[in-house]
Simulated assay, not measured.
Amino acid sequence: MGCDRNCGLIAGAVIGAVLAVFGGILMPVGDMLIEKTIKKQVVLEDGTIAFQNWVKTGTEIYRQFWIFDVQNPQEVVVNSSRIKVKQRGPYTYRVRYLAKENITHDSENHTVSFVQPNGAIFEPSLSVGTENDTLTVLNLAVAAAPHLYPNAFVQVLLNSLIKKSKSSMFQKRTVRELLWGYKDPFLSLVPYPIVTTLGVFYPYNDTVDGVYTVFSGKDNVNQVAIIDTYKGKRNLSYWPSYCDMINGTDAASFPPFVEKTRVLRFFSSDVCRSIYAVFGAEINLKGIPVYRFILPSMAFASPLQNPDNHCFCTEKIISKNCTSYGVLDIGKCKGGRPVYISLPHFLHASPDIGEPIEGLSPNEDEHSTYLDVEPRIKGSEEKLYCAYSLA
């Protein structure tokens, strides 16, 4: 019996050692097989999982809007009082539900070209309010007129048309009108107007973004989804020097095997520039461990704080000779109209930028921009924030 017990213990120890050896061998072999499979399946070509999900995303993507409702428009117009605002929202829309179109493969250069159709469907269950909520907001046409028509004589004429149309510096608009477009009564009276329909995102529905040409990753998996050209060019023609370059992906996906040390670069046509994010933390997202990459404050800093940003400074009044920060002039990208972008509540902006406005409360937890990336594969879930304003 003693021999049987000892033999059993010895056999168990031998089997355990053998299994440990096999485990030590099979674990790296398994990792290699997984890595090989990932490299094969993330390539953007017919037949791969990545391509199928890339053409039309299998998950629902939403875009949420919070809008500042002006509480004291008359006081501002008559007495030049501080603007009091109240945040309303979110107003949620389902986007990116349409499949990419005009997909063309270039096997010689290992690229794929496409356009992304734009569409937005209101989602009441994820919204606080409806598309018909009426808010008091800046009158886009009246605010932009002095910038677009600086001639003194023309401004006298425009002021008469503003009065005739019963327009003012502020207006009441529904959420749908403000976001997607409305017929402006003042512009409808202007002879030979540039446009008569305005909206923060007008035109959007039934339009396309692109043409994008991205690398398929067939010859180099580290280039999967990285943009080669946008609208046939590698530069935007908006900014001087390297600020004009189109870098990275479109933020919907990234090459696989993301390391914490990597700087994630991506291009957004909404904000008319390339931007970047750096590792912030490890997050558990719906049971999946992901890396959270955050847009750093230095991305919006003034050239005095970050010399690399010198070519984003347009020396407009709002920048105070490029000493103020946190607001970017993208007017050249928007047809010459006076359009500026910032993070919500002017997060990471100069204190003087938000000083004329009462009701702002910027904080990192609610208003930062980040991307959650599954490090082994190339998927990402993003929270890309920007606030649009006209001045």
Rank of each mutant, 00 (worst) to 15 (best):
C7H: 01
L9Y: 08
V14K: 13
G16Q: 06
G23Q: 05
M27T: 08
V29Q: 08
G30M: 06
E35I: 05
T48W: 06
G58Q: 07
R63E: 07
D69E: 02
V70N: 13
Q74Y: 03
V76F: 02
V78D: 11
K84Y: 13
V85Y: 12
V85I: 11
T92R: 03
K100V: 09
S107W: 06
S113Y: 07
L135P: 14
V142C: 03
V156Y: 01
N159Y: 08
I162W: 13
K164W: 09
F170K: 08
K172C: 08
K172G: 09
D184F: 14
D184Y: 08
F186I: 01
T197N: 09
V211D: 03
Y212L: 00
T213Y: 04
N222G: 07
Q223L: 13
Y230T: 09
G232T: 05
A252D: 13
A252C: 06
P256L: 01
E259K: 15
K260R: 08
I275W: 03
A281L: 05
E282F: 05
P289Q: 12
F300W: 12
P303M: 02
C311A: 10
I317W: 12
S319M: 10
L328A: 01
K332L: 15
G335P: 08
P338Q: 10
L343M: 14
P356D: 07
P356E: 05
S361F: 11
S368W: 02
T369Y: 01
D372E: 14
P375D: 01
R376T: 14
